[in-house]
């Protein structure tokens, strides 16, 4: 049968035995090798968490605290002044990023889904070549598209606008989203589309009623991937936006790199964390789909 139902059955089966067997397994699990594995994992987790801890601690210290203590010392006085100041600096830019990321993510995901649907279910003459060229887009470094993109935006009258930046992100992202959806849909049996055609469904009905409802995992993958890429983008932001239209990554860079006055590390750290929070949130909300979606093609039924 189809992958979705297989996955459903498999996950249901996974749930059942862990109910009573889990405790027993934990009891006899304490062997030296298992201990070593856990120790290694804990160490690795700690190593990755240290920068975050440093940032968090620094962001709630006073500038004096930062100067007198070390990176990991506990703050003498706990203060949110860094966060307040940081927010007052990046406030507008944060919303710029939202205004860029949300439309760009939604449009590139939608176009990718449609592309993937056509490339896997309605193959046309030359569709393989088309897909190959599109794949090529995944390997293009950002730098190579800067000049052509800026030329095109100028011609379109979109230079230095949020819409222009959205367009650049959409075009650049379509290669990835198409790849995701196409690889997901090639695992869907052709017979499903054939059955729907015999049932009288047309191109968009088949897409909307049959394929999209099966696509939740890969939609999540696309949303996470695209949001992370676009929210964290610096290069397109610094090149294609100026002044008040800049995204938060550019604003953060400007804040950290100002050479006037004393360095306020607490503000820098708080601003960096504000810039990073939305991607963190997206992972927490949709992350469980991420691995499932990425490996969906691998567990062919």
């Amino acid at each position: 049968m189809n992958d979705a139902s297989v996955a459903q059955r498999r996950s249901a089966a996974d749930l059942l035995p862990s109910g009573d067997g889990g405790a027993k397994r934990r009891m006899r699990a304490i062997s030296p090798s298992r201990l070593a594995i856990h120790a290694t994992l804990l160490f690795a987790a700690a190593l990755y968490l240290v920068p975050l801890v440093v940032m968090l601690l620094t962001s709630i210290k006073t500038p004096e605290d930062i100067r007198t203590g070390n990176l990991l010392s506990w703050p003498e006085t706990f203060t949110l002044i860094g966060w307040v100041k940081a927010w007052s600096v990046v406030d507008g830019y944060f919303w710029n990023s939202v205004k860029i990321a949300i439309p760009a993510v939604l449009i590139s995901t939608a176009v990718g889904a449609l592309n993937g649907y056509v490339l896997s279910m309605w193959r046309f003459r030359g569709s393989q070549l088309f897909f190959g060229l599109l794949l090529f887009g995944c390997f293009l470094p950002f730098q190579t598209v800067l000049l052509p993109a800026s030329f095109t935006l100028g011609k379109l009258g979109l230079a230095n606008t949020t819409a222009g930046l959205v367009l650049v992100h959409v075009v650049y992202g379509i290669a990835f989203t198409t790849l995701f959806f196409r690889n997901y849909y090639v695992t869907v049996p052709d017979a499903l589309v054939r059955a729907a055609r015999l049932d009288g469904a047309g191109f968009f009905t088949i897409f909307g009623r049959i394929l999209l409802p099966m696509s939740v995992p890969i939609i999540m993958v696309c949303l996470i991937w695209q949001f992370t890429q676009i929210w964290n983008d610096f290069l397109f932001g610094v090149v294609f936006a100026s002044g008040d239209a800049q995204p938060i990554t550019v604003a953060l860079n400007n804040l950290v790199n100002t050479s006037t006055g004393a360095k306020e590390y607490n503000v820098d750290m708080a601003a960096a964390m504000i810039a990073g929070l939305p991607t963190l949130l997206v992972y927490i909300v949709a992350g469980k789909y991420f691995l499932r979606g990425l490996t969906a093609g691998a567990v062919k039924g």
């Binding site: 189809n2 499903l192 059955a195 729907a196």
Partner: peptide
């Protein structure tokens, strides 16, 4: 169809 091709959702 041989594979039944039922709409899974």
């Amino acid at each position: 169809f041989q594979s039944y091709a039922l709409y899974p959702t």
